[in-house]
Design a protein around this nucleic acid. Structure first.
Length: 283
DNA sequence: GAGATTGCTAACCACACGAC
DNA sequence: GTCGTGTGGTTAGCAATCTC
């Protein structure tokens, strides 16, 4: 897959502290914006979110299915927003440069044309800003299953297994519970330690991360977040969050091996750090 | 073969807005 | 008020392929 040509983006902390605020400043923080440029960009993002990989012509046809003149006009407008423009000798950046959208292959049937799709940061920005309903998020999961295989690729199973807790991925898109998992109240719940280890594991990738590694980080966040207890006070709760996660993992061998390896890595990491402190002679 | 379609690049002009 | 910048609307043109 020919992905992200010339586009660089960072890990989840980079999303929270750079990409999200920058994108909100440039393209709006809600679908109720009155700024035309924000509306146009959000429309492109919505088309790519709900339809997956498209050429600019296909995007314009989705916008105006029965009006070829408008398609021609819109296609040029969409391209300009995506790739930027040069006017009066000055270059203005487009959505590709920020990294919300990436090039994903080419169409060879006509003069070679680029195909575009959302990046993982773009997907998170859409989940954060576009006020999508559950049906829309289901469509994104279908179109981007290859990009986020451990989450979107198992969406239907996860929906039934977590009783719709899958939609909490919007919490990640808002940058919440990312680097502040200390709100976990249950001292036997390892969510704080595991969330912290996710950041340790990917800390060198703040400025640059491959799409595969970012998908890995998002997936680890997603499954670790399932440990979050929202009903601690409820006596009616039949399963602890740990057992609930175990039950989900038990149904899928590859998923189980993958996540338990992460937990073992975290365990080894913390044991080693504790050993270093003990041997330092400070205690 | 001619015209239509599709993809891409660039330019012109107008307007809004903030800085000075 | 002037200037620079960002953006929208529009047009022109080139090239390859498709359709009739």
């Amino acid at each position: 897959m020919d992905v992200g040509q010339g586009t660089h983006y960072g890990n989840l902390l980079s999303y929270k502290y750079y990409m999200r605020p920058t994108a909100q400043k440039m393209y709006g923080h809600s679908p109720n914006t009155k700024i035309k440029h924000h509306e146009n960009v959000q429309k492109i993002l919505q088309i790519l979110a709900l339809n997956g990989t498209c050429t600019t012509w296909e995007m314009a046809k989705i916008r105006f299915p029965n009006d070829n003149d408008k398609v021609r006009t819109k296609e040029k407008e969409f391209r300009r927003l995506l790739v930027g423009r040069i006017d009066r000798g000055k270059h203005s950046s487009g959505m590709l440069e920020l990294g919300l959208v990436v090039k994903d292959g080419k169409v060879y049937r006509h003069p070679v044309s680029d195909k575009y799709r959302l990046s993982l940061h773009g997907i998170l920005y859409c989940l954060d800003v576009l006020n999508l309903n559950k049906n829309d998020i289901d469509k994104i999961s279908e179109k981007y299953a290859d990009v986020l295989p451990k989450v979107f690729g198992k969406w239907d199973y996860l929906k039934s297994a977590t009783e719709d807790q899958v939609y909490t991925i919007q919490i990640l898109a808002r940058g919440l519970l990312l680097d502040n998992p200390e709100i976990v109240k249950n001292k036997t719940n390892p969510m704080y330690e595991l969330m912290s280890f996710i950041h340790t594991k990917f800390r060198k990738n703040f400025e640059s991360i491959s799409e595969r590694d970012l998908a890995e980080q998002i997936s680890l966040w997603f499954y670790t977040y399932l440990l979050y207890d929202t009903e601690l006070k409820s006596k009616a709760r039949s399963l602890t969050s740990v057992k609930k996660l175990q039950r989900i993992l038990d149904q899928d061998d590859s998923l189980s091996r993958w996540y338990l390896k992460f937990v073992k890595d975290a365990d080894r990491y913390y044991a080693k750090r504790a050993d270093t402190i003990k041997k330092s002679g400070l205690l």
